[in-house]
């Protein structure tokens, strides 16, 4: 089974982000980057599928030169080879634009399965996988926690996936390969990166493709105008009064402010 995993490089979770002078993006100069966490789960799922059923895991990522570091990390964790779609204006493209790049680069590989993370930790769009499926004309399922190959005939396989629904419900969904699944965090246990993996990754193939050569439109359908700091800051509200008063006030807050009841 040939599995492609689309991974994204995002600012590290603890990176201190500052809005740049244009007011349209963040200062990238001193940022440290990491692999988007849901993508790490997608990669883990792919590696486990390969360990069970054999095949090949290819990672694909688009972005500037720095993305190669995250690609190395994926190779270190066990991917077999990688495709780097070099693109320096990623932030200016919308979800459709990025998906077009990926779809064009993926098409010639004709994978049996394409996995992406559910959403990215920086933009949080949660659309890329679904749009790529649409562009490639493949069936898809989103919010997937576990993947199973239930039947296999030649290169065709039937896939069964466990999908998360709202409020603690789940569903299993079947679809034929080739297919696209977007993977939710937490379905698996991630493996940690090892020194041996990093050393071995040095010899694996990374093919670079330039965005300009893929012949897709860069004109966005949605334009980011500005980024700003949100107003609210987290603070603790202490509820006073007698036990009954405090209890009543709490229930009120939980119901209408926090909306968790």
């Amino acid at each position: 089974m040939k599995i492609i995993v689309a991974i994204k490089q995002v600012p590290e979770r603890d990176a201190q982000v500052h809005i740049d002078s244009s007011g349209q993006w963040i200062e990238e100069a001193n940022l440290q980057y990491a692999m988007n966490e849901p993508d790490a789960y997608a990669l883990e799922e792919a590696l486990q599928l390969k360990e069970k059923a054999g095949g090949e895991v290819i990672v694909i990522s688009t972005g500037p030169e720095r993305v190669s570091q995250t690609i190395r990390e994926a190779l270190a964790k066990g991917a077999d080879r990688a495709i780097h779609v070099v693109c320096d204006d990623l932030a200016a493209r919308d979800a459709l634009g990025v998906a077009r790049l990926l779809a064009a680069a993926i098409q010639p590989e004709s994978p049996d399965l394409l996995l992406t993370g559910l959403q990215s930790e920086d933009l949080g769009l949660g659309q890329t996988g679904v749009i790529v499926a649409e562009l490639l004309g493949l069936p898809h399922a989103s919010l997937i926690l576990q993947v199973e190959i239930i039947a296999k005939e030649g290169s065709k396989a039937q896939i069964k996936a466990r999908r998360e629904l709202e409020e603690g419900w789940f569903q299993s969904i079947e679809l034929p390969s080739p297919a696209v699944l977007t993977i939710q965090s937490g379905g698996n246990k991630l493996r940690y990166a090892t020194l041996m993996g990093i050393k071995r990754a040095k010899t694996k193939e990374v093919r670079t493709v330039h965005a300009a050569d893929l012949g897709v439109s860069a004109a966005p359908a949605v334009a980011l105008e500005a980024i700003t700091l949100p107003k609210k800051q987290k603070s603790t509200q202490i509820l006073n009064g007698s036990a009954e008063e405090a209890a009543a006030a709490l229930v009120e807050k939980l119901k209408f402010e926090a909306r968790v009841l």
Binding site: D14, Q16, A34, K189, T194
Partner: peptide, 28 residues
């Protein structure tokens, strides 16, 4: 270094530090 140690707590600690800044996994 070879990945032979498979411990849920250990992996959690390593991943917290691979992705974040502190061993406790708190946001900065």
């Amino acid at each position: 270094n070879t990945g032979a140690w498979d411990d849920p707590h250990g992996a959690k600690l390593f991943l917290a530090l691979e992705r974040g800044s502190n061993a406790l996994g708190f946001p900065l």
